[in-house]
Amino acid sequence: MAHYPHTLSDGLEIRIALKRSAKKNLILRPINAHEISINIPPFLSESRLKKWLDENETLLRKTLARKPAAPDPHEKPGSIWYRGVQTALGEHGAQTIALMPSEILLPQKDWDAQKNHLRHFLTERAAEYLLPRLLRHADAMNLAPTAVGLSNAKTFWGVCRAKTGIRLNWRLIGAPEAVADYVCIHELCHLPHPDHSPRFWAMVHRHTPNTDEAKRWLKANGGALFVLG
């Protein structure tokens, strides 16, 4: 799958994830608020595609506005979110995963094996990245969770319980720093406020001025963080 940028008439730059397996018609699907997957016939040239994109900006905008379909964990994606950046997936001859500036290189195996390896790799990175971040916020807020850890939850980004502490979804390794900070602080605020009362939200907003932006990012892109299942 090829990825390249496309600029709309108002200067907004979006990403096109291009597949060449369509039989006849172009097939458009939203990936997130800034990226569209387009499946085209193999014979369609890039110049003709560029002309089509320029002439169908309204359709592109409508596609971007649609809710993305849930990612198919059985289909290998061309890229994944990693710390807020859509990072391409490539392959190399080594047996370990290599994290490059703009690419994650996987061992040359079938997708199921690569996916399991990648999930393990990202969970390790999440432990190194998210948990110290959570503890730094806890220290700054003078709060002390009973314990901290990661979860493999399918329905929430974090959970806070008085007896078992705070657990963060490992998939947040894909989110930008500001979004990870929001989730950390959201869960920490549940220590003094185990509800979603006005006092709880006032505390969240006091410690994360970007709360609304972080919630919008998760709404637009959160589904894509589950591409590995």
Rank of each mutant, 00 (worst) to 15 (best):
P42R: 10
A175S: 01
N152I: 09
Q114A: 02
S197H: 11
A70V: 13
H34F: 13
L53S: 00
P132F: 00
P77S: 04
D112H: 15
M141N: 06
V179H: 00
T87I: 02
E55I: 03
E91P: 02
P176I: 03
A2K: 15
L143N: 01
W81H: 03
K109V: 03
S37G: 08
S79L: 04
N210F: 14
L135F: 08
L106F: 04
G93R: 06
K215A: 08
R167A: 07
G229K: 03
V159I: 15
L64C: 09
Q86R: 14
V179P: 01
A144F: 09
H120K: 14
H117W: 12
P42N: 10
K51F: 07
H117V: 10
K76I: 08
E177M: 10
N152C: 10
P73Y: 04
L172G: 00
S21M: 09
Q86H: 11
A69H: 13
A33C: 14
V148L: 07
A65R: 08
P41Y: 01
G90L: 01
L228R: 02
R15H: 15
G11P: 05
L59I: 13
P192L: 10
R15Q: 15
V85H: 08
Y129F: 12
R125W: 02
R15D: 12
A69Y: 11
A178V: 12
P194T: 15
N32V: 06
D10A: 09
K76C: 12
V148Q: 04
K115L: 10
M203F: 04
I27D: 11
A70M: 12
N32Y: 05
R133Q: 08
P192Q: 11
D181N: 06
L135W: 07
A127Y: 05
D54A: 10
